[in-house]
Every structure is written in C-alpha cells, then in structure tokens.
Computed example of a mutant assay.
Amino acid sequence: MNRIDRLTAILIQLQSRPLVKAQDIATKFSISLRTVYRDVKALEEAGVPVIGEAGTGYRLMEGYKLPPVMFNMDEATALLTASKLVQSKTDAGISKHYTAALDKIRAILRHSEKDHIEEIDAHIAVMTHPSIVYQPITELHLQSILKAIGSSSVIEINYTSLEKNETTHRKIEPVGIYCLGSHWYLIAFCQMRKDYRNFRTDKIKQLMITTEINSKKHPPLQSFISKMSADKEVTKVVIDVKPEIVKFLGEQKYYNGFVKEERAGNYVRMTFLSGSLMGFSRWFMLFGDHAKIVEPLELNDMVSAIAENILKKVEEAQVVV
C-alpha cells in the first residue's frame, strides 16, 4: 500500500471510531509506531483536525466530517453479499435497517459500480440445507438487544425455556449476542438467578428496555464464548464412511463436531470432536450399515447396545402381534 492510500485509510479509520490507538494503526497497516506518528503529522499539516490524547490515542475534532467515501467494485460486491446473509440470518428489523443503509451506500456509488451491483444481485443466494428444518423468525429482538447493550440498560423479557417449556418474567443485563447454527443467542446477567445465562432469542416472547442501568460492568462477550468452548469436554471420534454416503450427511456432520475428512482406501475417513458420545452413537445409527468406527472403541459398545435394544423391542412387538 502506498503512502497516499495509507493516509486515506487512516483517515477513514479515524472517522469511523471515537478513538484509535497508535498501536492499532501500526498493527493494521504493518508499519512502525514512528511511521504512524509521521502519517498523523502529515494529516494535521493537510488541515485534518486530529486530536492526540497522551497515552490514549487519536480522534477527530467533534463535528469534522469527510465527504462521502467512494467504494470500488470489490467493496460494493462484498456489501451486496453481506446483505444476502443479513436477510437470511437475522430478523425483519435488522434486515430492514441494513437494506436502508445499503440504499444510502448505493446512492454514492459510481454508475459503473451501480450497474455491476444490479447485474450480480440475482446471482447471489443463501440457502438452507434441505435436511434442516428452518422457519424464518420475523422478530428476534436483535435491534432492541443491541440498543440496550449500547446504553448499558436492563431489559425485561418474557422467556419460554426449552427444557420445561415454561414462560417466566425476568430482568436481565445483556452482554452480547451470537449466532450458532440456525439460531441467535443472548448472553446476559439474570437478576433473578444472580448469574449469567444463555437465552435463545426466538424464545423471547416480549422484550422491553427499561430506564434501569446495569448493576455492574460485565466481561466482554468473547470471554464467555471462550469459556464455553473450554468448559465443554470433547472426545475425538474417527469413522470410515462409504464415499457414496458422505454427501447425505449434509450439515448434520457439523452439529456433531466435524473436523476433517480424507480418503482412506475404499472409504472416506472422517474426524470429529464430539461433546456427547451417546448423541454421536445415535446419529451414527442413521448410516451405520455403510460405515465403521475406527476410534474410540467404547463407541462400538454404545452402538451395539442401541442396536440390541432396538432389536429386542422389534421382537417384543412381533410377539404381541
């Protein structure tokens, strides 16, 4: 990247964030801190009101605005692709706001980029796997949750639990949201349980942002996600599957901890990190007559026990008939 492009990129970064650290600029553009200082000085000499806060970082003077930034064709294509994912993976509220934002971006594109966007729009799609039942949810409360997080506000919800199918009224302090599989989840501090809890957002029936402020500063979302991964005990599973069967496993293999696959003689060797051998053994039964277990050996025992139990029940049913 030449210096002119880098100065422009630094200026865009300053405009898009309330505060930018010199080290963050150096890391992003793979330059030294000394070069960062020279670049910032160059921007100041060009009339850009950059304010340096000792030990903190840089920011632009309040009220300073840049003219609309022009997007190149690759950036415009990336935005269009992202819009397809937003429409598919979020609710009507987020999708509506994203579409409105994208329309504003389209308005400042050059004619060539606008024509390109129109041309490829019908050639990008996001589909769900036919083996997975997916019902689009019109309200996932994502916009309201993010608004509450931004203002550190407590929210009140009516939540229906998955385990007991009971609806309870709760006051929670939202930490963050994440998407896993076909669902969005909210991690929040529950005032009723006095602990952090995980809520599936499509199970929230009502949500209201209150005027109450969070009782304390909560750890970042990533720390909870990292802890969830660390706390989950997994077992390495290796199976050999006939090649003609692999395609029918679809996305279900990912829900069972799929890691990799490779050719092994007349089979495809598949490796998984499973959080539940019992759950994996029952999934394996769906295609077990076209596969074999390599490891662990205890998985063979589980599958055998399930098969024997099924056979026993079939024999009992035949006797009754």
Rank of each mutant, 00 (worst) to 15 (best):
127 M>L: 15
72 N>V: 06
286 L>N: 12
154 V>Q: 09
110 R>K: 14
226 S>F: 02
10 I>T: 07
209 I>T: 13
99 T>A: 15
192 M>D: 08
216 K>P: 01
152 S>C: 05
77 T>E: 15
231 D>L: 14
209 I>P: 07
187 I>L: 13
97 H>C: 00
39 D>C: 03
243 P>G: 11
183 H>P: 00
18 P>R: 11
17 R>C: 03
248 F>S: 12
196 Y>S: 14
312 K>D: 10
202 D>E: 12
71 F>W: 05
31 I>M: 13
120 I>H: 08
220 P>Y: 03
47 G>L: 01
18 P>M: 09
251 E>I: 12
125 A>K: 12
233 E>S: 15
154 V>W: 06
5 D>Y: 11
194 K>T: 06
205 K>M: 12
206 Q>S: 15
114 K>Q: 15
14 L>C: 12
288 G>E: 05
107 A>I: 01
221 L>R: 00
228 M>S: 12
206 Q>P: 07
179 C>E: 12
270 M>D: 09
49 P>A: 12
100 A>R: 13
170 R>A: 09
105 I>F: 02
217 K>M: 10
156 E>S: 13
83 S>V: 01
160 T>Q: 03
79 L>D: 00
305 A>Q: 06
101 A>H: 05
230 A>S: 13
219 P>W: 01
305 A>P: 00
196 Y>L: 07
173 E>G: 10
227 K>G: 00
123 H>G: 06
318 Q>D: 03
22 A>N: 04
223 S>E: 13
99 T>R: 14
189 F>A: 05
88 S>M: 08
205 K>W: 05
136 P>V: 05
209 I>D: 04
209 I>K: 05
144 S>C: 01
315 E>A: 10
314 V>N: 08
92 A>G: 01
317 A>Y: 05
292 K>R: 14
292 K>M: 13
279 G>Q: 04
81 T>F: 02
256 N>I: 02
61 M>W: 00
157 I>H: 10
212 E>L: 11
253 K>F: 07
111 H>Y: 08
38 R>A: 15
102 L>W: 07
170 R>F: 01
260 K>G: 04
1 M>Y: 04
99 T>W: 05
239 I>F: 07
7 L>N: 05
289 D>I: 00
145 I>E: 06
30 S>V: 05
245 I>K: 05
320 V>W: 03
321 V>S: 07
44 E>N: 02
197 R>F: 10
301 D>H: 08
92 A>T: 07
280 F>C: 11
319 V>R: 08
92 A>L: 02
238 V>A: 10
148 A>Q: 10
308 E>S: 09
197 R>N: 00
279 G>Y: 04
170 R>D: 11
93 G>C: 11
24 D>W: 07
21 K>L: 06
138 T>D: 15
157 I>L: 14
99 T>F: 11
193 R>N: 15
111 H>C: 04
231 D>N: 12
45 E>G: 07
190 C>F: 04
57 G>P: 02
296 P>L: 01
151 S>A: 14
218 H>C: 06
292 K>T: 12
161 S>R: 00
171 K>P: 01
187 I>Y: 04
